[in-house]
Simulated scan of single mutants.
Amino acid sequence: MSIKNITVLGSGIMGHGIAQVSAMAGYKVVLRDIEQKFLDKAMEKVKWSLQKFAEKNKISKEEVDIFYNNITPLVDLQTAIGSADLIIEAVPEDFDLKKKVYQELNSLAEKNIIFASNTSTLPITELSKLTDRPDKFIGVHFFNPPQLMKLVEVIPGIGTDSKVTEEVTNYINKINKRPVICKKDVSGFIVNRVFIPMVHEALYSMERDNVSMEVIDSAVKYKLEFPMGIFELADYTGLDVVYKASYEMNLRDKAVLLLHPRIKQLYDSHDLGQKTGKGFYEYKGDNYERIDLTPEKASKYDPYSIIGVATNNASWLIDNEVCTIEDLNIALKLGMGLKMDIFDFFKKNGPDNIMNKLLELESKYGSFYHPNQYLYSIK
């Protein structure tokens, strides 16, 4: 088993980004979409991105053409997968759409081809059952944008052959990304298991403690040393992404987050964050505007419940042997921009205060806040 030729299905932001980073590593890539106009737009973006790399002296001007020409855009599916060793599905995060794609692939793809889904939340084992090769099916969750983000979560399903996991992990290393293995196919995988519940908890905190978004975001940025506030990060990620991840995670595991209705309201009103000009905050112009977060605002609030929920879910991942502590910390640093290990946040911000807050919330709002046993072991 050796991966040389790759087909990427779907030429959107994730699809053409995955195609580009694979082409830059010397792989021959076919980028497939259902209409030529989508492919033309994607290839324009690939050329622009490669030229930006050249302007910053990260690649040579000659390499722009070499890497660009490593990608072949095609509409016909059978031709697109003809020489593939690995097919990466990067279509929108819709289970029914993915089901349709895999039904079509089953009838056309050779039995030795590995199928990989770039899903951010859909269960890999569930998706693998849509195919005729659960043993050759795996999750590869790239982060947006793939050209810049180093992290890739690798998620084997229950039936995934260990050799497939090894081959795909080798591929991730060869494209100069950092793979982390999610050893169990759990809701949210690693990063979203920590990040998404924090967004909902920040909303509850705002209501329960009667504080503003800017105060909470300032506290998260300056007291927890996040690269930006949690509402700001959600807007940057896209509230469509947050909503769909929340929905899928909650559908499959009621214990993973406490849903706040505001996320669905924003999604339904198409206020999706920076991309639409409005989400939790309003944005003007094409350039990303930073929210006015200050240490002074941060001093007005202790985000004990937010860090409590984050470390509780991180503890659950370790307690259930979903990943190693090393991979957990690497995933959160590369995927969320954390500056220190997650449990160091816990220790730095007062373990007793955080635990007491979780116990107080458990008494009022139920077992979601029950402290994980692992937190007691590191307190």
Score class of each variant (00 low, 15 high):
111 K>P: 14
107 S>T: 15
49 S>Q: 11
51 Q>W: 03
135 D>M: 06
102 Y>L: 05
81 I>S: 06
137 F>S: 09
113 I>V: 15
130 L>S: 14
131 T>V: 02
74 L>N: 10
67 F>A: 15
118 N>G: 09
60 S>P: 07
79 T>W: 01
45 K>E: 14
134 P>D: 09
100 K>G: 10
89 E>F: 00
115 F>D: 12
52 K>H: 04
91 V>D: 07
52 K>L: 07
125 T>M: 07
124 I>W: 00
80 A>F: 02
91 V>Q: 07
127 L>S: 03
55 E>G: 15
86 L>F: 08
61 K>I: 10
70 N>T: 00
42 A>F: 01
79 T>M: 15
117 S>Y: 00
77 L>I: 14
107 S>W: 02
107 S>F: 02
67 F>T: 02
60 S>W: 01
110 E>L: 13
92 P>M: 00
110 E>D: 09
110 E>K: 08
119 T>F: 09
96 D>E: 15
58 K>E: 14
134 P>A: 11
50 L>Y: 01
116 A>E: 04
84 A>R: 03
75 V>C: 04
86 L>G: 03
65 D>W: 10
122 L>M: 13
61 K>V: 07
132 D>E: 11
126 E>C: 10
47 K>P: 03
100 K>M: 13
132 D>W: 05
71 I>P: 11
128 S>A: 14
137 F>D: 05
53 F>R: 12
133 R>E: 04
83 S>Y: 02
96 D>T: 11
111 K>F: 01
127 L>T: 05
119 T>R: 05
65 D>L: 09
42 A>H: 00
87 I>Q: 00
102 Y>S: 09
72 T>N: 12
98 K>S: 01
122 L>Q: 13
102 Y>N: 07
82 G>S: 08
85 D>S: 06
62 E>A: 10
77 L>Y: 00
44 E>N: 15
92 P>Q: 04
112 N>Y: 12
119 T>M: 04
126 E>G: 09
107 S>I: 11
100 K>W: 03
74 L>R: 12
123 P>L: 04
68 Y>F: 15
